[in-house]
């Protein structure tokens, strides 16, 4: 694994390309793709302890592609991406997770999902208490604990 702790311009380009393949933009849902500038900036700013694995994943991706991923024909790019996910192990899984965890906290994405743009605390959430008469059949059936001598 590389000891390098920042991404090269080529790696950044490949990260952007693979991110768009994981989550492309959607007009239907009014969401950006994961290659969006803000999401990419979030990824790069918060790589932290995942940097080594992401660099390893991008090294692996570069080996599979043999050239900048974006320069491949679409069919070849899809093939590389598929191979990357199958053979990339923990490193590839980490890259995908890093992309998804930044994508699914983006304001535009959360808004599209109908989720509030906030941390859970201190607002919390309200739960319906529910209809506890649902328990009546369980109470009616009863039962007993197994006896211990």
């Amino acid at each position: 694994m590389s000891d390098q702790l920042t991404l090269t311009p080529r790696q950044r380009d490949d990260l952007r390309t693979i991110a768009a393949m994981i989550v492309p933009p959607s007009e239907e849902y009014r969401v950006p793709g994961a290659h969006d500038d803000i999401i990419q900036a979030d990824i790069l700013a918060t790589l932290g302890r995942d940097t080594k694995q992401v660099v390893a994943a991008l090294d692996h991706l570069a080996r599979l592609a043999g050239m900048p991923l974006a320069d491949l024909e679409p069919a070849a790019r899809d093939g590389v991406a598929q191979q990357f996910r199958i053979s990339g192990g923990v490193a590839a899984a980490t890259l995908v997770r890093v992309v998804l965890q930044c994508y699914y906290r983006d304001d535009r994405v959360l808004r599209s999902l109908g989720l509030e743009l906030r941390a859970p605390f201190p607002g919390g959430h309200v739960l319906p208490d529910g209809d506890w008469s649902l328990l009546d059949p369980v109470k009616a059936r009863g039962g007993a604990l197994r006896r211990a001598p």
Binding site: M21, I22, V23, P24, S26, E28, Y29, V31, A81, R85, A93, V96, R97, L100, Q101, Y103, Y104, R105, L110, L113, L115
Partner: peptide
């Protein structure tokens, strides 16, 4: 949502690409 996306992608039920959004929802 993040946990859902990450785990479902790993399980192979959340695809990459155009269908990602529909399936995620």
């Amino acid at each position: 949502p993040v946990f859902e996306a990450v785990v479902s992608e790993q399980k192979g039920i959340l695809p990459w690409g155009a269908d990602h959004h529909r399936v995620f929802r």
